[in-house]
């Protein structure tokens, strides 16, 4: 029986997640610009507010007041719908990620997750696959050859890498025996899965970069050859939505990766069993998840600053000839070891 109090709890938790993600998006752009600048011997944005902290606000205001252009030959309905289709999956995918166990406020205990469904990983797979429609439709409806090429590239790339991504999920599922994210985190109390599934972790890392179109797999955008790829014709808030989807997806895959392989919200101290936990800072909680996500994002930005873009045909070869077989072998080996170890 669902009570009114429960519904309110869900609504408030959903709002918090969406606000954290959109706020996070704004500050990830600043984070990226700052980190890139430091790597490239520059200063980065520092004019708007102290340390440039108001820069995302300025960017947002600028984008809102930009003129919205729709190309003459564009399919108006799909052209408007495409950014929406792209951004919504990015926003809802993190609903199943637990931020912590529970917290007691005003004498009542609240869980620190929106929902704990037993098919969480299937849900993630299903939702991330939807966003490719947005990108493919954006490329096609713009009536622009560059955008079409970008959209086609995106479709091929995301479909290829979804397989490797899915196979890298299988390792943690096998080790836990459950698809619930909460169970997966709890199973990592003693040892994070990155140590048990190093190959799976590397697979996930590479496939997730391709999944969110980040360098060196940022083929669909490919500023140098396709000018901007699928969002070449977009401006104003429609462009901002694509931008938002990309950065929220970055946060989302970082959260998923941290949960599957790095122990999610668990403090690394829980691995050293028997050590007394001193204070909330060292105890498990959402702050550890944030720290892991920040490190993961730093890695993504670092890769972007360092590596050239891989070529499209090479990307496909890597996906189908290396990562897909590797993922299969990893699954078989993991399963065999679990059976032999008497699981």
């Amino acid at each position: 029986m669902v009570t009114a109090a429960q519904i309110w709890e869900w609504v408030i938790k959903s709002l918090i997640i969406i606000l954290v993600l959109t706020g996070g998006f704004a500050y990830v752009t600043l984070y990226e610009r700052k980190v890139l600048a430091r790597i490239q011997a520059r200063v980065g944005p520092n004019r708007a507010g102290p340390f440039g902290l108001l820069q995302p606000v300025a960017d947002g205001i600028k984008l809102i007041f930009k003129e919205e252009l729709t190309p003459a030959g564009a399919d108006k309905l799909l052209f408007t719908l495409a950014p929406v289709i792209t951004v919504i999956p990015a926003l809802v995918v993190t609903a199943v990620i637990p931020w912590g166990e529970s917290v007691t406020l005003f004498g009542k205990t609240y869980t620190l997750y929106l929902t704990d469904v037993n098919v969480a990983i299937l849900y993630i797979m299903a939702v991330t696959s939807i966003s490719v429609y947005g990108i493919a439709l954006a490329g096609w409806s713009s009536n622009n050859k560059y955008a079409t090429l970008g959209g086609l590239r995106a479709t091929a790339q995301m479909i290829s890498y979804e397989l490797a991504l899915g196979l890298s999920f299988v390792g943690p599922i096998l080790l836990t025996g459950s698809m619930s994210m909460l169970e997966i985190v709890r199973a990592q109390q003693k040892l994070w899965f990155i140590f048990l599934q190093p190959a799976g972790f590397v697979l996930f890392l590479a496939a997730s970069l391709a999944e969110v179109n980040r360098a060196p797999f940022d083929m669909p955008e490919a500023e140098q050859e396709l000018t901007a790829g699928y969002h070449a014709e977009y401006s104003g808030m429609k462009f901002a939505l694509f931008f938002m989807a990309e950065y929220i997806k970055m946060i989302a895959v970082s959260m998923i990766g941290a949960t599957l392989f790095l122990g999610g919200y668990l403090s690394p101290l829980t691995m050293l069993s028997g050590l007394p936990v001193i204070g909330w800072l060292f105890a498990s909680g959402p702050h550890w998840l944030f720290l892991k996500v920040a490190l993961w994002l730093f890695f993504m930005i670092w890769v972007r600053a360092t590596l050239p873009r891989i070529r499209y045909d090479r990307l496909m070869q890597l996906g189908w000839k290396i990562m897909f077989p590797l993922g299969l072998v990893n699954v078989i080996v993991t399963a065999a070891v679990i059976v032999l170890a008497g699981g």
């Binding site: 890139l36 490239q40 500023e223 972007r304 050239p308």
Partner: peptide
């Protein structure tokens, strides 16, 4: 030309 291959940091080191 390395920026054309999307290796973006080299560009700024060269400009320095």
């Amino acid at each position: 030309s390395s920026l054309d291959l999307a290796a973006m940091s080299v560009f700024l080191y060269c400009m320095r």
